[in-house]
Design a binder for these strands. Structure first.
Length: 193
DNA sequence: AACATGATGATCT
DNA sequence: GATCATCATGTTC
């Protein structure tokens, strides 16, 4: 995916990434998923890790758009973001869910379960299904490698938007985006209408 | 102490 | 099937 074609606005990037493909090379297998749900996290956003400036953990959020920001949540899961905006801006797009497209059996093995609908729905599950951890933090996702972004495999459906999920701060901001009608979304039904 | 979560089991409709 | 409470767990500030 070309960085030049990625919108410089973090919110626009969150919308742009819906429908695009997340690719993962793993021991000869190519895992692929269609991004169906994202959230934007902005510099002046109390819920954003970048809100209080750059630290060792969030440094990748301050890179130019298209780099991975991976962090650990609740002591047991990883979450994958795509850095957004310009260098030093401090924004990111959280990839919250993908629709599995290829190497589903590898994902099933990594997740320890069979149901396709639940393989990669939710940021923690997604990272487990794609074997993503902190070794990916800071990686450029615009170039083919262990993990990268690729064009959509089919036309995108209608875009939906809602408040973000799981937040205590800034929970009213409408910064979550998803492909309407997808059967692979996280969150509750009323947020997916 | 809080946390950008998910698995599980209880209690509904 | 939906919804809700509970808890496991490590890092950050």
């Amino acid at each position: 995916m070309s960085r030049a074609r990625m919108p410089a606005s973090p919110i626009e990037l969150a919308r742009y990434l819906i429908g695009k493909t997340l690719m993962r090379r793993l021991q000869g297998a190519i895992l692929a998923g269609r991004i169906v749900e994202t959230e934007a996290y902005l510099p002046e956003d109390p819920a954003s890790h970048s809100f209080r400036g750059m630290t060792a953990r969030n440094a990748s959020m301050f890179r130019v758009r298209g780099h991975a920001y991976v962090y650990r949540i609740y002591g047991m899961y990883w979450c994958l973001n795509v850095s957004a905006g310009t260098e030093h801006e401090g924004a990111a797009v959280l990839i919250r869910a993908v629709e599995p497209l290829a190497s589903l059996d590898t994902m099933r093995a990594l997740r320890g379960m069979d149901d396709v609908k639940n393989l990669a729905r939710g940021p923690g599950r997604l990272c487990q299904a794609f074997a993503i951890d902190d070794t990916f933090d800071g990686m450029d996702l615009t170039q083919p490698g262990r993990l990268y972004l690729a064009p959509a495999t089919r036309a995108r459906g209608e875009l939906g938007e809602s408040t973000r999920i799981g937040l205590t701060k800034a929970s009213e901001s409408v910064l979550r985006f998803y492909e309407r009608g997808s059967g692979f979304l996280s969150g509750v039904a009323r947020l997916n209408a």
